[in-house]
Amino acid sequence: MKARIKITLKNGVLDPQGKAIAHALDALGFDGVGDVRQGKYIEVELDETDPAAAEDTVKRMCEQLLANTVIENYAYELEGS
């Protein structure tokens, strides 16, 4: 199955890259752009076919490596089997 993992900055953590993107969108003439936050999207192919076991694995991947939980949140979806 495939894990689709989204990593985003926690609320309250400043995101200078997101700010720069907001300014650039504004400069391009897009009106009404509010806060912009930049994150990461990671796809991981897994041999595991049991959804519960896959979920446990993905959680540990996020905690140990994919996200820095001091500043980042993670969310995931599992797809296929």
């Binding site: 400043l14 200078p16 720069a20 001091v70 500043i71």
Partner: peptide, 11 residues
């Protein structure tokens, strides 16, 4: 050590 080092504020 605690904390994290983020992208420079100036980018």
């Amino acid at each position: 050590l605690p904390g994290v080092l983020m992208r420079n504020a100036s980018l």
